[in-house]
């Protein structure tokens, strides 16, 4: 995820402090991976240098000074361009699982056991996500669904590969 573009996007609704940006980011997008303060300030320095944000004011409230950032016209254009650009689909061609299956077959180990163990691990994670989805709000449900659909695709591949192990064994061990 582009943290810079996301923080810029959050600034479109109005100026914010670094701390406020971090809190909003974590709340909306950082469920499992909250931002470090360092990341926020280094990103804001870069955006400032590139003219995508500007300092809207400095407050201290008796404590350390806090900069309030505002998005610039150039920043708004940058966010628009990022949102309009489709994400590159993952090709999924560098699969560790495929490598493991082939190596198991090459070395005379049980590829079926490997696939079963993987299947079980995938389902375990799907259970955790399903539970989180059930207890969460709509945003949580959407995030979990995205992960669940990918895990489901992996599982379908595992099933298909399990059904083709005999043929694959002949290909890798001619």
């Amino acid at each position: 995820m582009s943290i810079g573009h996301t923080l810029l996007g959050l600034l479109e609704s109005g100026p914010r402090h670094g701390y406020d940006l971090k809190r909003t980011f974590d709340e909306k997008f950082g469920h499992d991976r909250p931002l470090h303060y360092g990341q926020v300030y280094s990103t804001m320095s870069r955006l400032l240098k590139n003219g995508l944000v500007e300092v809207d004011g400095i407050e201290s409230d008796g404590g350390p000074e806090r900069k309030r950032y505002a998005i610039t016209e150039a920043g708004i254009t940058d966010v628009s361009a990022w949102l309009a650009q489709p994400e590159k689909p993952e090709p999924y061609l560098q699969s560790t699982l495929y490598t493991k299956v082939v190596l198991a077959l090459l070395t005379g180990r049980s590829a079926a056991d490997l696939l079963d163990a993987q299947r079980s691990e995938h389902l375990r994670l799907m259970r955790i996500l399903t539970d989180r989805k059930r207890k969460g709000d709509l945003a949580d449900q959407l995030i979990c669904d995205h992960a669940l659909f990918h895990l489901e695709a992996d599982l379908r591949w595992l099933e298909l590969t399990a059904a083709r192990l005999g043929r694959l064994a002949k290909v890798v061990n001619p």
Partner: peptide, 14 residues
Amino acid sequence: HEARVAAYSDRDVT
């Protein structure tokens, strides 16, 4: 036969 359905279970048997 669907993993998304099975994910509602406590455990699975194949």
